[in-house]
Amino acid sequence: MNKLLSVLLAGTVSLFCMGQAQAAFPEKPINVIVAYAPGGTGDISVRMLAKKLESILGQPLVITNKGGGAGVPGFEYVMKARPDGYTISAPATPAFSASIFLRKKAYDLNDMSFVATYMINDRILLARTDRPYKTWEEFKAYIKANPGKVSIGSGASQEAVEVLRSVAIKEGLDVNFVMYKSGGEASADLIGGHIDACELGVGTAGYQAARKGDLNILLNLGAGEVPDFPNLPKLHADLGHPFYTSAPYAFILPKGTPEDIRATWENAIKVALQDPELQNAMLKAGFSPKFMTGEESKAFCQESVNLIPAMLEFNKKAE
């Protein structure tokens, strides 16, 4: 009798708690901190998702752009916030590599609470269609035939340039790497023919031109799928190169956020991504929607964060 009572009591209490937890979060507007200036891929994708998340969570999402410092200060602002689920960072992950490149300091991924990934921002290598090379193999041969004369641009990813540098070292290619400030600027110079190939994120102007057939895509530098080009060779998976660059755009909460709140968030993102309308809008914009749980996102990020120092070491040795 006593046992039964205690079981019943425990059951009621836990039911009560669950009910409370569900009613409790979220009960006020949520701050989403985008650590980049408005208008970029990261900002636009979060805004697309936010609209759907608002209807799932039942609370308005207030998006604040805390730009500057390559996304590091904005990300750290959230990590220092109160871990109650009302301040969340997205797309947080680019800050990981930025911190390594800018100040040689890697984050400990245990110091934060991964919620979920909503898209993978892969880097791809593009070239003009009127060039004599249409594939990665042909491009390699072209570089070998014209040592020192080929310039590859970068739409502002230091990590992607290092990946390409490691490829050049491994394959014995003599190329020039031209850094740009943004994907838009690099796209213009690629389309204008001032550089021979260019590395860009999906969703940039160059990528849109490729979808229309005005540019060729030679290679995927990342590990994800590019929806419009399923047969694109992947540097790591298909060509066996040891390094790659892939940024899963994820929502991240400060360390110490209660698990049920994190799970509410994770589930909301999962449900949001199942919406065909959102899927469609993202694909139309050139983004690659992909859901990964917090655990999966963390493992994915851990792997790419571990790769960077090894890659830098590899590139340094060759110099």
Partner: peptide, 16 residues
Amino acid sequence: ALILGGFMIKGLVPGP
């Protein structure tokens, strides 16, 4: 850039 963002949220991709 912001207007581009406005376009893209609407599912319109400026370009050729």
